[in-house]
Amino acid sequence: MNIFRFAGDMTHLISILVLLLKIYATKSCSGISRKTQELYALVFLARYVDIFTEFISVYNTIMKIVFIASTLAIVWCMRGHRVVRRSYDKELDTFRHYFLIAASLVLALLVHEKFTFQEILWAFSIYLEAVAILPQLVLLQRSGNVDNLTGQYVFFLGAYRGLYILNWIYRYFTEPHFSRWIACVSGLVQTALYADFFYYYFLSWKNNAKLKLPA
């Protein structure tokens, strides 16, 4: 494992912790898209079906469990917690996320490395992860105002994607036979989706102003 991959995993973990902290500390999930969270839960469940059949390292197994458990906890809070549920911006979170699931599934059936159950689920999870942030970005765009922790959450998620790209570049040059274009192309698409957000994030940071997205 290289430093980029590890740093990427850590920023991914931090983003989830920031989100849990926001929900726990403010008892509110305003500004957070439940659809994005449900898509991530689906992404992790589909990708980590190998958790019992394939052992890579203790680190990998623990991280898989943490990602599945924390994302399910967030979804549970947003759906089941009496107080948190009331703050959900239901009328702003209207992205048709079922289209994303259907499109990812069709693409996975057409473009995969091997026609096996696990490989197709794996490709599906990669495609779905690439677009899972869309409902969240649309929600932020609609509400205009982004509170601090929500901004940090999206920032760390974007940082995770950027670091994974550096990780692939590093692996491409250091490991023989490392070329997995399904993940790399999807990863590039996913990172590009953050470009706009990052632009405004750095603008607000530079001007020491509250993060605002243009309508």
Binding site: R5, D9, E54, K64, W168, P176, H177, F178, R180, A183
Partner: peptide, 10 residues
């Protein structure tokens, strides 16, 4: 997974 495989990532 075989060496050089992306499946060892999260």
């Amino acid at each position: 997974p075989p060496k050089g495989s992306i499946h060892d990532e999260l």
